[in-house]
Design a protein around this nucleic acid. Structure first.
Lengths: 191, 191
DNA sequence: CGCGACGTTGATTTGCCTCAACGATTGTGG
DNA sequence: CCACAATCGTTGAGGCAAATCAACGTCGCG
C-alpha cells in the first residue's frame, strides 16, 4: 500500500519487506458514510489507518451533545486510545464522514509487531508524541482563545475540510453551538 | 534511585545494570519554590523526572492569564513536549510549587538510550500513550462539563493537592477565574 | 413530492468574567 | 519580634460571550 509506506517513511526508514510484514497483520475494511466503526461501551480492538475517505471520533455528553475530538483524513491513524491500550470499553464513537477505506491493526498484532520490528515501535512512539503535542495545544487554545479565534485557527489548520464538512461538525469541533457559529459567520461578512 | 526504578517497573522489567545505564545519562538538579525550570521562548532540552517536591507547566495567553496544563508530583515526568521533540523554542513555563529535586534527561541522551536500550523506548511509548489518553479526556471534559463539575472532578483526581495548592492555581487548572471558584465554593456550603 | 437534517435569524437567558473594594494570610527586612 | 508590603481569598455590582428556545427557509434524498 503506497500511502502506508509513505506515511511510515516520514518518521522511519522501512524496507518493502518490512512493510509486507506489517501489512500481513492488517485487515482491509470499508465503512460507508454515516456508519460506525466504533461505538461507546465497545472495546476498541483496532487502530485504523485511513486510506481514503474520512473518519471522525467524538464523545456524546449527558445532554446528548457531540464533542468531536479528531478528524482522520487519508494518511491518519484513529482509534479510541483509552480503550485500545486498556482493553476496556471506551466512551468514544467513530464514524465515517464519507465512504472510507481502512487498514485495521489490532492491539495484539501491534504489540507483536513491536517485538518483531522495533522500528515500528519507534514509529508509533513518534506519532503518539506528536498527537500529545497536538492535544495539549488544543487544550490551551480552548482555554485561552475566543470562539472567533478558534474558528480562524480551524480554517487555517483544515482549509480543505471547511467546504466539505457540515457546519454543525465544525461547531462541535471548536466547541460552540451551530447557531452561534452561524451568527459569527454572518457578522464576519459585515465587519 | 529508588523512585525511578519503581516508576520504570510499572511498565517494563528493568535490571539494576540497565537502570545504571540510564542514570549515567541523567543529571541531578534542584529547583527552589517559585523558580523556573523552563520559560517560554526557550528550547526544552530536557525532560524532568520529579524525585521530590512538585512542578507545574502552564502557558500564558495574550491577556496575561496562566493556563496550567499539568502538575508533576514525585514519580512524574514533565517537559514542554513540543519544544522537546522539535528542538524549537516553546511557549510553556515550568516552575516549582515547592522545593523540588529532579533528574534531567536531554532529548539527545534519550534518543541515544532508545538505541542502546529498546526497553526504554517501550517505556516512553507507553507513558506517552497514557498522557495522550489523559489529555484527550481533559479536552472532552472542558467541552462538556460545567465549571462546578470540573471542580468536583479535580477534587476526585487530586485529593492530595487540594489543601496544598493555592486556590488560584486550581482555578487556572479547571479553567475559571479565582473569583468565580471562590463563589462556587461558598454556594457549595449553602446547597 | 414530502420528509428530515441542516442553516439562519431573533428574543431571551445564563454562566462566567470584569472591576473594585476589603479582610486574611504570608513572608520579609529592619 | 514587629511593621509593612505583597499576595491571596472573599464578596458585590454590573457586563458580555455564548447558550437556549423557537420559528422559518432550504436543500438533498428516498
Amino acid at each position: 500500500m503506497e500511502l502506508l509506506l509513505h506515511t511510515f517513511s516520514k518518521h522511519i526508514n522501512i524496507t518493502e519487506q518490512e512493510l509486507t510484514v506489517v501489512l500481513n497483520r492488517m485487515r482491509k475494511k470499508t465503512v460507508k458514510k454515516k456508519q460506525y466503526l466504533l461505538q461507546a461501551d465497545q472495546v476498541a480492538k483496532d487502530a485504523a489507518f485511513v486510506v481514503s475517505g474520512c473518519l471522525r471520533s467524538y464523545s456524546i455528553d449527558d445532554n446528548g451533545f457531540e464533542h468531536i475530538l479528531q478528524f482522520a483524513p487519508p494518511g491518519w491513524w484513529i482509534t479510541d486510545m483509552f480503550s485500545f491500550i486498556s482493553e476496556q470499553p471506551g466512551n468514544l464513537f467513530i464514524d465515517a464522514i464519507e465512504n472510507t477505506e481502512l487498514l485495521l491493526l489490532s492491539r495484539k498484532d501491534q504489540l507483536a509487531l513491536f517485538d518483531e520490528l522495533p522500528k515500528l515501535e519507534r514509529y508509533f512512539r513518534i506519532v503518539t508524541e506528536k498527537s500529545l503535542v497536538n492535544s495539549r495545544q488544543r487544550l490551551v487554545e480552548n482555554l485561552s482563545l475566543t470562539a472567533k479565534e478558534r474558528y480562524e485557527r480551524f480554517c487555517n489548520i483544515y482549509p480543505t475540510l471547511i467546504n466539505t464538512l457540515p457546519q454543525k461538525q465544525i461547531a462541535s469541533f471548536i466547541g460552540v453551538t451551530p447557531e452561534f457559529l452561524s451568527k459569527m459567520k454572518s457578522q464576519w461578512l459585515k465587519g
